[in-house]
Simulated assay, not measured.
Amino acid sequence: MANRYLHNVQGLFDTIAPNYDRMNNVISLGTHRHWRKQTMARIHLAPDAHALDLCCGTGDWTIAVAKTLQAPGEVIGFDFSAPMLGIAQKKVQQQHVADRVWLRRGNAMHLPFKDNTFDLVTIGFGLRNLPDKQRALAEIYRVLKPGAQLVCLETSQPDQPLIKPVWQWYFTKVVPLLGRLYAHQYQEYSYLQETTRHFASYQQLAHMFEQAGFQDVHYQRFNFGAAAAHFGTKAVK
């Protein structure tokens, strides 16, 4: 069942890849760039670090991490969608970070990396689309070095009484219509708003981090809770 789900989601992202960046800007009103910038400001990474950007999509966060590194530092952008990675590769060349970026295709729940490999793992707007999120967190924990950090930037749900109904209306009614208007992909964006609305709350996601073994778990919320960055550190034995 999980493999079929993953295959279907992969097909969806293959389909929306050409419009993905434009739709992200439209749906978030451009604020997703601010969220990522704010999150990056809280990441302290040595220039020669080895990082992994999971569910990297079209590579924006991969490139942001790469710009903080110097050889032999590197970041691997990892995604299951070949069309997404194709767009990411073009961006990597345009941003002149090809010497620090490797792009690989694969399954985030079965990472092809050795234990204790990375100084940082990032995952942006991808965890909610994985069928077994706890398995993915366990894999991330495995490949991180002791003392290294996971940073997860995700959509979330506002909990303020005045904001929450507006947010629900926007994602339930407006987002699919924007998908139809700007990308002619109503069904695809109907699915994406469902994953957003039903994803774990910021408190639940923090608990999921702790269940996976992460320590010093904390988060930063954006836009009244429309998104949140979660941070967790692998224990030092």
Score class of each variant (00 low, 15 high):
Gly126Arg: 00
His198Glu: 03
Trp102Gln: 11
Leu137Met: 10
Ile140Tyr: 06
Glu154His: 05
Arg135Val: 15
Leu111Trp: 02
Leu103Cys: 07
Gln134Glu: 13
Gly124Arg: 01
Gln157Ile: 05
Leu192Phe: 02
Glu154Phe: 01
Cys152Leu: 15
Asn129Lys: 00
Arg104Ala: 14
Thr122Glu: 09
Val166Glu: 01
Gln149Asp: 08
Ile123Leu: 15
Tyr202Thr: 12
Val151Glu: 01
Leu181Gly: 10
Leu162Tyr: 09
Pro176Thr: 07
Arg180Met: 13
Arg128Ser: 00
Ser190Arg: 14
Pro176Tyr: 01
Gln203Cys: 08
Arg105Val: 06
Gly179Ser: 04
Arg104Trp: 06
Gln185Cys: 08
Phe125Leu: 04
Leu181Lys: 09
Asp119Lys: 07
Leu177Asp: 02
Ser156Glu: 04
Pro112Ala: 04
Asp159Asn: 11
Ala148Glu: 07
Val174Lys: 08
Lys173His: 15
Arg104Met: 14
Gln160Ala: 11
Tyr141Arg: 02
Thr117Cys: 13
Leu137Ser: 04
Tyr170Pro: 15
Gly179Asn: 08
Thr155Ile: 12
Thr117Leu: 03
Glu194Leu: 00
Ala148Tyr: 07
Tyr202Val: 15
His184Lys: 15
Tyr189Gln: 01
Cys152Asp: 13
Pro112Arg: 00
Thr172Phe: 09
Leu153Lys: 03
Pro161Asn: 07
Gln203Leu: 14
Tyr189Asn: 02
Gly124Phe: 09
Phe125Ala: 01
Gln204Trp: 06
Arg128Cys: 06
Asp132Lys: 09
Gln203Met: 05
Val175Arg: 00
Leu130Val: 15
Leu205Asn: 03
Leu127Ile: 11
Gln204Phe: 10
Asp115Ile: 03
Pro161Glu: 11
Leu177Glu: 06
Val101Asn: 05
Leu205Lys: 01
Val101Asp: 09
Glu188Gln: 15
Leu205Pro: 03
Pro165Trp: 07
Met109Phe: 05
Asn107Ser: 14
Pro131Gly: 06
Asp115Met: 05
Gly124Pro: 06
Asp159His: 12
Leu205Ser: 00
Val143Arg: 01
Pro146Asn: 02
Ile140Asn: 11
His184Glu: 08
Gln160Lys: 10
Thr196Lys: 00
Glu139Thr: 05
Thr122Ile: 09
Lys173Pro: 02
Met109Arg: 05
Lys164Leu: 14
Arg135Pro: 02
Val175Gly: 01
Phe118His: 07
Ser201Cys: 10
Leu111Gly: 04
Pro161Arg: 13
Gln204Asn: 12
Leu150Ala: 11
Arg135Gly: 03
Asp159Cys: 08
Phe118Asp: 01
Gln149Leu: 06
Leu137Tyr: 00
Lys145His: 08
Tyr202Ser: 13
Phe118Thr: 06
Arg105His: 11
Ala108Gly: 13
Pro165Gln: 10
Asn129Ser: 01
Lys133Phe: 02
Asn129His: 12
Gln160Phe: 12
Gly106Cys: 09
Tyr191Ser: 08
Lys173Asp: 10
Asn116Phe: 11
Gln203Thr: 14
Gln149Met: 14
Leu150Cys: 11
Asp99Ser: 14
Gln157Phe: 02
Pro146Trp: 06
Asp99Pro: 10
Ile163Ser: 03
Leu178Trp: 07
Gln134Arg: 13
Lys164Ala: 14
Ile140Glu: 01
Glu154Arg: 00
Glu139Val: 04
Thr122Val: 09
Lys133Thr: 13
Phe199Ser: 00
Gln168His: 12
Trp167Ser: 13
Thr172Met: 02
Leu144Pro: 12
